[in-house]
C-alpha cells in the first residue's frame, strides 16, 4: 500500500495492523497554516513486513503540529524506516513523539527513525521525543533527532554565486525537505514549495 495522508484533510486511522509479508509506504503531510495532529500506531504482527514511513511539516505562522508515531514490532524479520522533516518558524510549535518498540520475539528486526527539524525563528518551538524500546537481542535499530537552523555555510555558498539571500533560504528549505518532498505528487509538491 502506498498512501499519502494530508493531516487535517484526509482521515488518518489511529492504528494500522500489518500481517506477515505486507508492506506499507505512507507519507504524512502537515501543510502550512494548518494546525493538526497525526497519531498513528503501526502493529507489525507477522514476519517480513516492510514499512517506509515519512512525514513533512511546514509551519511558519502560529500553527501547532503534533505527531505521535508508534511502530511496534511484534514479529521478527520486519523492516521499518521512518524519516520526518519539518520546518518551524514564526511562533509555531511542533511536537514529535516517536516510539519504536521491538518485542522479545521480534528477532532480526531492522528499525530506523530519523526526525529533523529546522527552526526559522527564536520563537519557534520543537519538542522531539524519539524513543527506542528493544526487548530482543538480534536486531538493528537506530534513531536520531536533530533541531537546528539553516546552515550558514550553505547559505554563503549560494549567495557567493549571486543567489539573493531570500532565494538562498528558499533553496535551503527545499533541499532540507527534498527527501520527503520527492515522495509526493507534483501538485502537492508545488503547493508546498510555493509556500516556502
Amino acid at each position: 500500500m502506498d498512501k499519502i495522508c494530508i493531516l487535517g484533510r484526509d482521515a488518518l486511522p489511529g492504528s494500522l495492523a500489518l500481517r506477515g509479508g505486507e508492506s506499507l509506504r505512507l507519507t504524512l503531510v502537515a501543510l502550512p497554516g494548518v494546525s493538526c495532529e497525526g497519531v498513528l500506531t503501526l502493529d507489525l504482527n507477522g514476519p517480513g513486513c516492510q514499512v517506509d514511513l515519512a512525514g513533512l511539516y511546514l509551519c511558519r505562522g502560529d500553527e501547532n503540529v503534533r505527531l505521535q508515531i508508534r511502530v511496534l514490532h511484534h514479529a521478527g524479520l520486519c523492516h521499518s524506516r521512518q524519516l520526518f522533516k519539518g520546518i518551524v518558524g514564526g511562533t509555531a510549535r511542533a511536537d514529535f513523539d516517536g516510539l519504536i518498540r521491538v518485542d522479545p520475539d521480534a528477532q532480526k528486526t531492522e528499525a530506523y527513525q530519523e526526525a529533523h527539524t529546522i527552526l526559522l525563528s527564536d520563537q519557534a518551538r520543537i519538542s522531539a521525543r524519539p524513543q527506542l524500546e528493544i526487548y530482543a537481542d538480534d536486531v538493528v535499530c537506530s534513531h536520531g533527532a536533530t533541531a537546528g537552523f539553516l546552515d550558514p555555510d550553505e547559505q554563503f555558498y549560494m549567495r557567493s554565486r549571486g543567489i539573493p539571500e531570500a532565494e538562498a533560504r528558499r533553496l535551503q528549505m527545499l533541499s532540507f525537505l527534498s527527501p520527503v518532498l520527492e515522495r509526493l505528487p507534483e501538485d502537492l509538491q508545488k503547493e508546498i514549495t510555493d509556500a516556502l
Binding site: R161, L171, S175, F176, S178, L181
Partner: peptide, 11 residues
C-alpha cells in the same frame, strides 16, 4: 558545499 535536492541546473 553539498546541496542535496537542488540540481546543479536549478542552482
Amino acid at each position: 558545499i553539498e546541496i542535496p535536492g537542488v540540481s546543479l541546473t536549478n542552482f
